[in-house]
């Protein structure tokens, strides 16, 4: 681990650079950075539940899409954009509490399977509710309703910072310790008195709020939303790959992973339009096989957690 001071100092420098960015950057870089910050926020959200507890969610794009739709429906009613943002987070919250309550009773693999199809069901649900959502035609927002790009940028920036602060706060708290205990051996954690159900649910709800808010900001930036774009499986892929690449269960891993993956995408995508998702797959596979701790593992001097434990609860074929 880097010293705490170095960690804080680099965080401060990064924050200052990003805060002054709109003053010096053109619109395109600003919109690129907005998307990068969005991915940081999403990666941190996934990290909060899956990185910390080992409960792998293949369905977090659902909260993102729900947030988008909440904002897209409220903005035309004259609700101010910041209130739409809060509404996006609240919708995600409202969905995550019952959902988490039901699915978190399931052990790791079953939870993963249950979450894998969530996205798809949300898409069908939103498509079928034509009266509210306009169904597959999507919702268009008129430009005068939308905040400026600079506003979207700063909002996304705040969400990304908030997400990172939440992860950092959890990481260094007793709550974080309990979550890691669940990841390493849930049964044992329960036995020493950890309220695993409450902890998992708390982490799950926190991890849903952030995509809800980020989704609301995205729709203000694109001005158009349809079910296919709101519940895109690619969002799930990106979240997972970025966290695994950077270092799952760490504070800085998702930031590093999102920055590198988005940067690489930006450079390579013009050259190889169809290949970049494939490269993400290769990246995921290599990290899982050869660097289970992600890039952050390269920075840590003493290993806090054995890599095979970092990926989830122990499971042997002879169980």
């Amino acid at each position: 681990m880097l010293s705490k001071h170095a960690s804080l100092a680099s965080a401060a420098v990064l924050v200052v650079i990003l805060a002054v960015a709109p003053a010096v950057l053109g619109e395109y870089y600003l919109s690129f950075l907005t998307q990068l910050l969005m991915m940081v926020a999403l990666a941190q959200a996934w990290n909060t539940i899956s990185g910390m507890t080992g409960y792998v969610s293949f369905g977090h794009a659902t909260f993102f899409g729900m947030g988008s739709y909440a904002a897209a429906l409220l903005l035309p009613l004259g609700v101010p954009w910041w209130a739409c943002l809060i509404a996006g987070a609240l919708v995600a919250l409202a969905l995550s509490v019952p959902l988490g309550f039901l699915t978190l009773r399931l052990r790791g693999p079953y939870f993963a399977i249950a979450m894998l199809g969530l996205n798809e069901v949300a898409r069908v649900f939103v498509t079928l509710w034509v009266d509210l959502t306009g169904g597959g035609s999507g919702i268009t927002l008129s430009p005068e309703l939308l905040p400026s790009l600079t506003t979207s940028y700063y909002t996304m920036f705040l969400i990304a910072v908030a997400a990172t602060v939440i992860v950092a706060a959890i990481y260094h708290s007793r709550f974080g310790l309990e979550l890691r205990a669940i990841r390493e051996d849930e049964g044992a954690a329960e036995m020493v008195g950890v309220n695993t159900t409450r902890d998992k649910l708390a982490a799950f709800v926190l991890s849903a709020l952030i995509p809800g808010a980020a989704g609301a900001v995205l729709v203000m930036y694109t001005s158009y939303i349809d079910p296919a774009a709101a519940f895109a499986p690619a969002v799930n892929i990106q979240m997972i790959v970025m966290v695994m690449f950077g270092g799952s269960g760490t504070v800085w891993g998702p930031v590093l992973g999102a920055g590198l993956v988005m940067g690489l995408r930006e450079v390579f995508w013009a050259e190889f339009p169809a290949a970049h998702l494939m490269l993400l797959g290769v990246l995921l596979l290599s990290v899982v096989l050869f660097l289970p701790g992600g890039l952050m593992a390269l920075f840590t001097r003493r290993k806090l957690v054995r890599p095979e434990v970092a990926a989830g609860p122990q499971e042997r074929p002879d169980g």
């Binding site: 792998v56 998702l277 290769v282 995921l284 596979l285 899982v288 095979e308 434990v309 609860p313 499971e315």
Partner: peptide
Amino acid sequence: RPLLTSLLATYGVSII
């Protein structure tokens, strides 16, 4: 290896 490791590995194979 942990079940989630193989889950993520085959997920990678699927994306590729």
